[in-house]
Amino acid sequence: MKLNEFNNAFQNEQQCLAYIANLKENKCIRCFSFNLNTSDLKRMRCLKCNQTFSILTGTIFSRSQTSLTSWLVCSPTGLYILVSNSLPPQELPLLVSIFY
Rank of each mutant, 00 (worst) to 15 (best):
I60L: 15
S67T: 12
Q14V: 09
S70L: 11
A9L: 05
K24C: 01
F32C: 04
Q90N: 09
V83I: 10
L47E: 10
F32Q: 09
T66D: 09
S70Q: 09
S54V: 04
L92G: 06
L23W: 03
F10N: 04
N4K: 08
F61S: 08
V96F: 14
T69D: 05
L23S: 03
S39L: 09
I55G: 02
E13P: 00
R43Y: 12
I98K: 12
A21M: 09
R30Y: 08
Q14R: 12
L3W: 14
L23G: 01
S75G: 14
A9Y: 03
A18S: 14
I55W: 00
E13S: 05
L94C: 04
C31V: 04
K48A: 04
L17T: 06
S70W: 01
L95M: 11
R63F: 10
K27V: 03
K27I: 03
I60K: 12
Q11E: 12
V73F: 07
P93Q: 05
I20W: 02
N37Q: 04
L56Y: 02
Y80H: 12
L82C: 14
I55Q: 02
R30K: 10
N12P: 04
N35T: 12
R30E: 11
L17K: 14
A18M: 12
I98L: 13
P89E: 15
W71P: 10
R43C: 15
L72P: 08
L92V: 15
K48I: 04
C49P: 04
L72H: 02
S33G: 14
L87K: 07
N35C: 08
S75T: 13
S75M: 14
N85G: 10
C16V: 00
A21Y: 14
T57Y: 05
Q15I: 05
Q90W: 07
C49R: 08
S86V: 15
K48R: 08
T38H: 00
S62T: 09
T52E: 13
F32I: 01
I81P: 02
T69P: 02
L41A: 07
C31L: 03
P89T: 06
I55S: 02
Q65I: 04
I98E: 07
V83N: 02
S84F: 13
R43M: 15
P89W: 07
N37V: 00
E25N: 11
F10T: 07
T59Q: 11
I81R: 11
T57D: 13
N35E: 13
G58D: 07
C28I: 12
K27F: 08
N85F: 07
L95I: 09
L87G: 00
I29L: 05
S75W: 06
P89S: 15
L36K: 10
L92K: 11
T69M: 05
V96W: 13
T59C: 10
S64K: 02
E5C: 03
L82F: 15
E13W: 06
Y100N: 13
C16I: 02
L56V: 06
M1N: 13
S86T: 14
S70P: 00
E25Q: 10
K27S: 06
C74V: 00
S70T: 14
P76F: 01
A18P: 12
Q90L: 08
Q65C: 03
V73R: 12
E25T: 15
Q14A: 12
C16Q: 01
L94V: 03
L94P: 02
T66S: 08
I98V: 03
I55L: 05
S39D: 15
N8C: 10
L95C: 08
P76H: 01
L23Q: 06
N7E: 09
Q65Y: 05
L72G: 05
A21N: 11
P89I: 10
